[in-house]
Design a protein around this nucleic acid. Structure first.
Lengths: 237, 237
DNA sequence: CCTCCAGGTTAACGACCGCTAACAACTCTG
DNA sequence: CAGAGTTGTTAGCGGTCGTTAACCTGGAGG
């Protein structure tokens, strides 16, 4: 259960299987990978997996639920830890955590929004709920930073930035990819904050996109007014 | 093999099949969709598809090659048309074109970076080459805009912004999603330009990111003609 | 009327895949 | 060493899937 405390004592095989299954699922898709292949990746063969998992679906379910839980838990921890710094610090912390995740667990982050529909109803609903809560963390802080941005736009922006941050799988496959991790992290951080910063000018009167010469968009953070505005959104269920 | 001009007033069976196949592939993955299902979507059943395509692989290949070709061609046209306005106008035009594509052909844009590995070597190489050329269009203009950004970082940024723009499939599945097309387009445009604009401060001394204290992020954008970009309708799908 | 052809149909085949059954080897106790 | 539990193995079943084969149909053309 505990990620931090458990080291080598944990069931090695299960984790081994899960890691390779994640990689294979991300590479070839859930339906494109056979159980024999997963078994071969960990040194055992075929049906031996069924000593550890109820089935292929169960592996995917555990992977996706695990990712969602860890993302949400990490996000909550970071949001709470950075709360004193105000919304900008919280957002920066969330970005940082997501970047870490995207760089450390590329296959998982790929599965996370790709193979969700292959789950059974119960699991899918659970993953969806966890995802929604994670998104909500971001939406809340974005709306505190940019109070003029409606909720729907804030949510869409968060999803868009997720797409940006989760684009790391596309980096490695090309020649001349970024070699070092910290450089990639810094680039993603810069881009993500740049995207969010652009919301400072929202709504920019229809079609008034930044233009007409060099502009300077000042991102100002109101730390004071954020506590007062906690009205629950019209939010959808 | 090659339809002379795919712009048509009367969608052929082939096009009908391709459209539905794209949607189904995007929804459930290439391996997750059976030929019977594709056939049923267009009113014929199962093996009737083989009067129009050599096989399931051929459908995917034609889809992916078609997308890549259209993306590249559209990008080249737009880049050339906006050249007089300078790099900023070219970039804005590329963004505009990609947004149109992402909004009009969501399933295709999803397949474009998801099912590439299911192709035969020859087709995959062709798609990869077209994609590379398309990316090159963007990388060139980004580097002209931000001369201090190395090529690897520019390329990664382009991929990241693609991830941002291609995130539209995630919008519709939630309640409270953006209803209107133009609003979504404007949001994506704002976010994408914000991300690119952040490269203006690259390389930003490590760790300068907001977090310790809310900064003002100077986003300099020099765009004029970007809203006035050609108003031709979206390429018919 | 007969032929031809494009575009359908159903039946069925072979391959693959997820999963179970039955069995084996290697611990860990006592 | 006996017995039990864990973790493998191989053989094989049932179902699905992509594809092919064989047949049908509705016009176009002489």
């Amino acid at each position: 259960m505990n990620r931090m405390t458990t080291r080598t004592a944990a069931p090695t095989r299960r984790e081994q299987i899960l890691r390779h299954a994640a990689r294979l699922f991300a590479e070839r898709g859930f339906h494109g990978v056979g159980v024999d292949e997963i078994g071969a990746a960990v040194g055992i063969s075929g049906p031996g997996l069924y000593r550890h998992f109820a089935g292929k679906d169960a592996m995917l379910a555990e992977l996706l639920v695990g990712i969602s839980e860890r993302l949400l838990e990490g996000g909550r921890l970071r949001a709470r830890a950075a709360e004193d710094g105000g919304p900008a610090a919280v957002l920066a912390s969330l970005v940082e955590g997501h970047i870490d995740f995207a760089l450390d667990d590329r296959p998982l982050i790929t599965l996370h929004d790709r193979e969700l529909d292959r789950l059974r109803d119960k699991d899918r609903r659970m993953v969806r709920q966890l995802q929604r809560q994670y998104v909500e963390l971001w939406v809340d802080v974005v709306r505190r930073l940019h109070t003029a941005v409606p909720e729907a736009e804030a949510r869409a922006s968060v999803h868009a930035v997720f797409g940006l941050l989760n684009s790391t799988p596309h980096f490695g496959s090309h020649r001349g990819g970024l070699p070092d991790r910290s450089g990639t992290a810094e680039l993603l951080r810069t881009l993500a904050h740049g995207a969010f910063a652009s919301l400072g000018a929202w709504p920019s009167g229809a079609g008034q996109v930044p233009g007409g010469g060099p502009d300077t968009i000042d991102v100002q953070v109101d730390v004071e007014s954020l506590h007062g505005t906690d009205g629950s959104g019209p939010a959808a269920g």
